[in-house]
């Protein structure tokens, strides 16, 4: 069983479109959508939800007015500006749930034990049957924290399915960036496939994302999407990849059928004869050999 995580640094380089196509080609695969902030894979693979569960991401704190003596201790101790004080006398204190990071310092030090907390539901996660096999996906509640923990949960569930059903691959659609949810998506994976594009932004972000996977010691492969948009930059990217010892396994041509596939809720490889579909097939052929 191999776990392959698709990430990009820069957003919008084509991670999800590529993952949907890989899903269509790879046999015995479970999919995991770890872009829990803005999940899109379900739009192509149309999963039918079989199991759905709440995700408890942390605690929500509130001040019980009947117990509060308005001493202001919580206001003074909170480093996140989450305790709000109004102008009345004595002042009324309230906790702003969006600014609150759930550290609990306010409640711990409140002399009146006036701060109440409860477990908070930060989102939901799902196990589904999608077009090309089982899929684990999630929805983080709007403006919620702990996307990193939710990513770990989605990956663990996918792994359990892969083990139980003796599947060959876990394909993970990762989030953009290099921060918390990306680190959660890649740690301990067998390999990472980085999708970039030949633009100054793509080139800049690629360097940072390669450094990230090196930092965590994960084997990485590279796919250059919209390869022919700027051949000069594509060449520079290839040189950079060589320097970092990252193998380029994919060169996908700029192709408008990628958008039309998305609108038709199809993976790009289903648009037979399109240049991008041919290139993605070639990418998978190489990648499959490399992974095994």
């Amino acid at each position: 069983m191999k776990e392959l995580v698709v990430i990009s640094g820069k957003g919008g380089t084509g991670k999800t479109s590529l993952v949907a196509s890989l899903a269509a080609m790879a046999e015995k695969t479970v999919l995991a959508d770890c872009d829990v902030d803005a999940a899109d894979l379900h739009l192509v693979l149309e999963p039918e939800i079989k199991h759905s569960e709440k995700f408890i991401g942390g605690k929500t704190y509130s001040i019980q007015p009947e117990k509060c003596s308005a001493c202001g201790k919580c206001f003074q101790l909170c480093r996140f500006g989450a305790v709000m004080k109004d102008k009345s006398k004595p002042p009324v204190f309230k906790i702003d749930p969006i600014a609150c990071e759930g550290c609990g310092v306010c409640g711990y030090f409140c002399p009146e034990k006036a701060i109440h907390f409860e477990e908070s539901v930060s989102g939901r996660w799902f196990i589904s049957e999608a077009r090309y096999g089982p899929m684990v996906h999630a929805r983080l509640g709007v403006a919620k924290e702990n996307s990193g923990r939710m990513v770990s949960l989605v990956r663990n569930q996918a792994k359990m399915i892969a083990e139980k059903e003796e599947l060959a691959y876990i394909l993970v659609d990762g989030p953009p960036g290099i921060g918390c949810p990306v680190i959660s998506s890649v740690t301990g994976a067998d390999a990472v496939l980085i999708v970039t594009e030949p633009t100054v932004s793509g080139q800049h972000d690629l360097k940072r994302v390669i450094e990230l996977v090196r930092h965590f010691n994960i084997p990485a492969y590279l796919c250059i999407n919209k390869y022919d948009l700027n051949l000069e930059i594509s060449n520079k990217i290839e040189m950079k990849a060589l320097e970092y010892d990252v193998q380029v396994v994919g060169r996908i041509r700029y192709d408008r059928s990628v958008t039309s596939a998305q609108v038709r809720k199809l993976p790009v490889v289903a648009i037979t004869g399109s240049p991008a579909a041919q290139d993605i097939r070639a990418t998978w052929d190489i990648l499959k050999k490399e992974l095994n």
Binding site: G11, G12, D37, A38, I98, A99, L140, V142, A143, K144, E145, S147, P175, P176, G177, G179, P181
Partner: peptide, 14 residues
């Protein structure tokens, strides 16, 4: 702002 809808975006647009 950064992409997404969670903490980094909130920090950027609050």
């Amino acid at each position: 702002a950064p992409p997404g809808t969670s903490c980094p975006v909130i920090a950027a647009i609050r």
